[in-house]
Structures are given as C-alpha cells and as structure tokens.
Write a protein that binds this DNA or RNA. Structure first.
Lengths: 337, 337
DNA sequence: CTGAAAGCGCTTACAG
DNA sequence: CTGAAAGCGCTTACAG
C-alpha cells in the first residue's frame, strides 16, 4: 500500500538502483535521469522506508538520551538543546529517564540498543565501569556530568568548580570573610566540585580553615534545616553559599522565620539560576548554568564521534558558568559577570 | 559481527523459524526446544535486530511526541508521564519540539513518519485540517489540548473550563463579587476555556455583566501590565483571577509596587500551579493541573488505537483539575478541593 | 552512467 | 512441532 522504491523505478522507467542513487545524491547518475526520478518521487509522495534503509546501512540517524529523573527546568532545557542540535543535522532523539536507578538506566540503554547510532548518558549514580558492561563496544557514548576518571567515553561537564570559585571570590570581594556552604548529596559530582571551588577560593584568602560547612541534599527541605542551624549559631557567617538554588531558597525561608535578614544580616547565594531565584525576596544571587548549551555541545560531540570515530581525543570538555549578582548578597543592581 | 538469528539457530541446532517462534513466545514450539533456544540466545547475548523486525512487521514499537516549544515544568512533566507509560508497555519515545511554528510541526511530523507507530501531537497553533494534510491516513494520532471540533483524531484536554469554573465559584464563596480576569492569548484554546469557565461561574451569580476583563498573553510582563491598570482603577475588583500563574505573579508584583495589598485589598488566583506559585509572597491560590497524568493518558489512548484500531470512539477526553487554596485569596490554610 | 542480483536480519505462510 | 523458502524495502558491489 505504501509507495516503495520499486514503484518509483517503474514510474520513472529506471532500475531501483538508479532511484536509490538519485535519491541519495550519488554522482553516478545523469542530471536528466536524476531530475526525472526526483520528479516522479515527489509526485508519488515517495518516502524511503527507514527500517529497510537501517537494515542495510546499520545506521538509524537517531540518538538516545538517557537522563535521570530530573524535575523541571533542567531536564526540559537539556532536551531542548539536544533536540535543536539534532534536528539541524537530521537526527532523531529517543528519550528515556532512568528515575535515578541504575537498573533502570541499564534497562533503558539495553532497550535503545540497535535503535540508535549513539547515546547521551547522564547518570550521576552510575559509574563508567557499569556502563562499559551494559554497552556494546561499538556504540559511541558521550557522558554528561559524569565522573571524569578512568572512562573510555568522552564527557561534558558544567564548570561547577569554576562557578563556585567565582561566586566565592565575589562574596570575598564584597568584604565577606566568614562564608559558609550548604553542600549537596555525598558522592554527587556536581556537589563535590562546587564544594571544592568554594574551598579553593577561601584558601586563596587563607580563610579555608574554620569555614562552616552544612550538609544538604539539594532539596529545599535540607536547605531549610541548614538555615535553622545557621540562624541559631552563636557566631553567624557573613555569607551563605548554597550548592544549589533550592537549598538557598529553603535557607532563605528558615532565616526569615527566625528574623535573620538577607542580605542585611547574612548574604546568600545559590547555584543553577532556576526561575524561582528571581521570584524570591530578595532575589537570589546565583551561578547561571547554560543547560541547553550543554545539550547542544554533547550532541555535537557525539556526532563528531559518529562521523569520524576515534578522531577526537577522549576527554572531558567543560562548559563555563557565569555568576548572576542580585539583591540577596547585597544592595547592587542585577548584573552578570 | 553482531550475533544474528542464524547464529542462534546454528548453535541451538534448529532452524531460524524456530528461534523466531521461541523468542516471540509463539506456542508452536516444544518446551524443550524453546528452553534450549532461549538458553543459547542469552549465552550468545543475542539481540534481535529492530530494523529487520520493523521491516517485516511494519511496527516500530516507538511513538512520537511532537510538542510546542514550552518552557520548563510543563514540557518535562508531560514527557515524563509519556515516558513512564511507554516504558511500562515496552514502547520508545521519539521527541521533537516544533518551536510553536506550524512549518516546523509539519517537518517534525514528516520526519517521524515511518519511524513511529503513532503520534502524540500538541500543537496549539495547528488545526486539524493542517494535520490531515501532513499525515498519512494510516498513522494513529492523539491530539493534546487541541481544538475539539471537526477532527478525525481522538483528543485529550485539561478541564480548563471546569478548573476556572471551580476557582471562580471558590472566590464567590469567599464573598468576592467583583472578580476580574486577566486573559491569555487570543485564539488560544486553554485561554478561551478558562475565560468561559470564569464567565459561567459569574453568570450563575448574575455577576457576569460588568465583569472586568484584561488582556494578557500568558507572559509575566502582560500580567504586570494588567496589574498596573488594576491598581489604577477607580473601582477596584475584589479579586483577580489570572488565566495562568505567570501572569498572576506579574500582577502580584505590579500591585505590590503600587501599594495594593494581596489578599488584604485584592484576592488573587492563578492557573497551572507552577512551582513558583509556592514561592511568591503571599503564596498563590491556583488551579493544579496534573501534567504527567495528561501524558500518561494520551499515551494509553494512543496505544488503545494501535492495538485495536477504530475500536474506541473518536472523541475528546477531559482530565480534571483541582483548585489549590493558598494565602493569596485570603487567610486560610493550604488545602486542595 | 545503468541494471540485474545479492543480501541486510528478520517473520510467516506453506508443507510435512 | 519443525524446516525450507519467500519476502519485507532498501543499498551496493559487480558487470557492462
């Protein structure tokens, strides 16, 4: 019922081989026949069967994106970045979220096998060894925000360390000395790097030794708990740097509940620049992360691998962050640095 | 290089036909041979080639989701709902955003042709006629939040009318009489339905005649502009119902700037229950929309069509909304109704 | 430049 | 219950 290459060949009075050549832009066809074939193909509304094509070419022009179950902005921004880049190159995007579970991640990857030419994997809970086992050797993979060590896969990261370094330096430049951090989940790479950036900046100012650190897990609730503890401190910090915005928001609320003013009594900064950062009062100083760019860059890296396997070195690329200064760290107009 | 059905057949000492039968759970194989085949298949790490299978079965076990370029929560929640439901049934999800452009929508749909068994299309700017032309007759489609009329496609909608009706009734029940609305973009189905719900509730109370209506376009800025006008009014409304949360937030800010207190001077309500609704001060009363459920329901409807084409009537299903009462419409604890 | 033919890896009547 | 064979719709050496 669907029109096939045979129908086109018959209607154009040529062999299927010529139709295939004409449609794929090969040069071993005369312009005249090519024209005729193309004309017939459009007239018949011919669409090559992708399955048949894939069967023989071993290519799907589809990539898979295996992502953890992230809420909101991050997930959609990432997909959007990937989608836009993919479409520009005529690729399709198969998505799957792994719900933060390594069994699910593995199942998702297995299910995508054979349907994709390559994989974008963002899986903070899964290490490279695990991936090596789940994946066929031939399948190109680009890792997102994964531990950089001992991996045969190229990887892309946000510059968590650089962003945290810049933010802490900014707080120092505004005269804050005692700068506390509310950290993210133990073992989380982003969280670790942000903590490292904070510590390095403090070390530059010889302030790292007794810097107050509070545990958190990236949830608003954990930020709230940390804020309560901070409010109760005998010697309060001048500034609090939360490892993400949601914890900063939780902290802000807890401080408010206890009559600690931001930024009057304590400056406050976050990380991510989620939309909510602009709606809390005072607006939150934070580190902006270009997530769609991360998606785009990861796709481009993957495509480079597909088109010229092994050409580019397997290494980690780092995407810059920028700090966004708003009212929560002092009285100054919004600006980006 | 990859192991094929032939390899399994040879290793198990049977024909490829038997391997195919065993693997597909047909009953015309003895348990003994089935066991042997399955065992060999797992030992060889055999994975059927999806392209070959699709070529002959005409099925891909993949569905496409063509969505407008939505920001944030909505998009990711919808994808998540679809993904979870799809995975439960062993389906893959191909995504594409159309950037609100009908040419892009059409291109995305064409590109997915042949790679998917069916399509979930959410395209507020595209009408059914257009879809009929872009789509092959055989491809099952379920529409999301699309105009319900003159369509051969089943469709799912949020109960925009019911949600707006319930919210307006709630505001009335709290004693508000003069209830203004800030509307969404002209021609937008969601916006129209919400307006209709508001008007119907007012009509029930014989209050529809001189109800103040302000134009908006779902952006925070348009809500802010409306808020400025409302603040300047000689006779201010008792309550303002914005057709979405972002406009409500903009309105809230504008009122605050002009010294109009919420809820003291004016009650305020929104629609969507985006996360920001809980972070503004006062927290925003709004209508909650279960987006992941919408995605799940749409997928299930599509699968029903795939498995038994034409069995179910082509009609619109409506998913309920619920109102969430918070501080912005008066002093009462959060509760859902 | 063009065509006849093989083959990609499956599934499914058709015989037995 | 099992196998030999045809065929899904393409692409690509191989001849000419």
């Amino acid at each position: 019922m669907a029109v096939t290459i045979k129908d086109v060949a018959r209607a154009a009075g040529v062999s299927v081989a010529s139709v295939s050549r004409a449609l794929n832009g090969r040069d071993n066809v005369t312009d005249a026949t090519r024209h005729r074939i193309l004309e017939v193909a459009t007239r018949l509304r011919y669409r090559p069967n992708d399955a048949a094509r894939s069967l023989i070419t071993k290519r799907t022009r589809t990539i898979g994106a295996v992502l953890p179950d992230l809420h909101g902005e991050f997930f959609s921004e990432l997909i959007r970045g990937i989608d836009v880049a993919a479409r520009a190159r005529g690729f399709h995007v198969l998505v799957s979220s792994s719900h933060g579970d390594s069994d699910e991640t593995s199942a998702a990857i297995r299910a995508m096998q054979g349907r994709v030419d390559g994989l974008l994997v963002m899986s903070p809970h899964v290490d490279a060894t695990f991936l090596h086992e789940s994946l066929p050797d031939a399948l190109p993979v680009v890792l997102l925000n994964a531990p950089p060590d001992r991996s045969r896969f190229p990887a892309l990261h946000l510059d968590n360390h650089g962003g945290a370094l810049a933010m802490t330096r900014h707080l120092l430049s505004r005269g804050h000395r005692r700068i506390a951090m509310i950290g993210g989940p133990a073992g989380n790479l982003d969280a670790d790097e942000r903590r490292r950036g904070w510590l390095d900046a403090l070390a530059e100012a010889s302030l790292a030794d007794d810097a107050p650190f509070f545990d958190g897990d990236f949830s608003e609730a954990s930020g709230h708990a940390a804020g309560q503890r901070i409010a109760a401190l005998a010697q309060r910090p001048d500034a609090v740097f939360a490892a993400n915005d949601m914890m900063a928001v939780g902290c802000l609320i807890a401080l408010g509940e206890r009559g600690v003013r931001v930024p009057g009594d304590v400056a406050l900064a976050g990380f991510d620049d989620v939309p909510i950062a602009r709606y809390v009062s005072p607006q939150l100083t934070t580190v902006r992360v270009r997530i769609a760019d991360l998606g785009r860059a990861a796709f481009e890296r993957l495509v480079a691998e597909l088109e010229a396997p092994g050409t580019r070195p397997v290494r980690a690329e780092v995407l810059p962050c920028e700090i966004v200064v708003r009212a929560s760290c002092g009285r100054c107009p919004e600006r980006t640095a």
